[in-house]
Design a protein around this nucleic acid. Structure first.
Lengths: 135, 135
DNA sequence: GACCGTTATATTTTGATAAATATAACGCCA
DNA sequence: TGGCGTTATATTTATCAAAATATAACGGTC
């Protein structure tokens, strides 16, 4: 039945792809990886566990979180040290909102890429034939 | 007169940014840097000069061009060695078309980002106030 | 045939970025 | 008090992509 959905690629074997991020004063504020990190923090309640689950160093995860917290003006994640479980990290309402906003725009973004791919012509190459040739 | 055009950023100080590329079988086929390289080749008629003008190593430029030529199925640039000027590189009709197609979609892409930024709410942070707090 | 500036290709070096490691502080609990 | 798992931070190490370097081939001109 001639696959009518999924990536048809317009017959050229090519498709448009892209990356999307929200830029703040010091560069990236929210991007794909950062949002996934926030989701993992929500899932595990721990920055260390979230980092491990993404096979990312704790330091890298901490730097990303620090960058987000600073640029947002308020914290996306509340952290605590010590205590019976050693400490933890918990998403704030702002953090939840950040995740939601990103995915919302990300979905629109992906839709545009899909649409662009569908509009893409059949192929870039054609005969080429540079005529007889002078000289 | 309250700047009404340019990047207002929706008052949040944030704006959506993105990268766009055309993906082929071996990854990127056409992206911003590759298209600029094609334009420089058209300008100079030489891959070496094009690379120098972008402060890019010749090898890197050659690799990019090779990747494009292979993935397109036909050449975007015709090269020649030796001769009075030592050789050269010249865009094919397909190469010209590739440049045009990329900028066409790139313009649409940038317009979408602009529109997304304009739609972006005023700020992610709000009171936050996590209420009285239990236990 | 020697020279020139180019394309073509391999190898070495560098530099930026992420990872790995180490250490300290925290605060509860046994 | 000592131990636990965490956050927080600095320092060292490893990785990998880009650059730099080197060399050859090409085909015209002189």
């Amino acid at each position: 039945m001639k696959n009518h959905t999924s990536q048809d690629k317009g017959g050229s074997g090519l498709k448009w792809r892209g990356r999307l991020w929200l830029e703040g004063e010091e560069g990236t504020f929210l991007g794909y990886g950062r949002v996934v990190l926030l989701e993992r923090i929500r899932e595990y309640g721990s920055l260390a566990q979230a980092a491990r689950s993404m096979e990312m160093s704790y330091k890298h995860a901490w730097d990303l979180l620090d960058s987000m917290n600073r640029q947002a003006g308020c914290k996306l994640v509340e952290t605590s040290r010590g205590g019976k479980s050693g400490g933890g990290a918990k998403l704030t309402v702002t953090g939840e909102r950040a995740i939601a906003v990103f995915w919302e725009y990300h979905a629109r973004f992906q839709a545009v890429l899909q649409e662009m791919t569908e509009k893409l012509g059949p192929a870039l190459c054609e005969m080429e034939k540079p005529d007889g040739g002078q000289s």
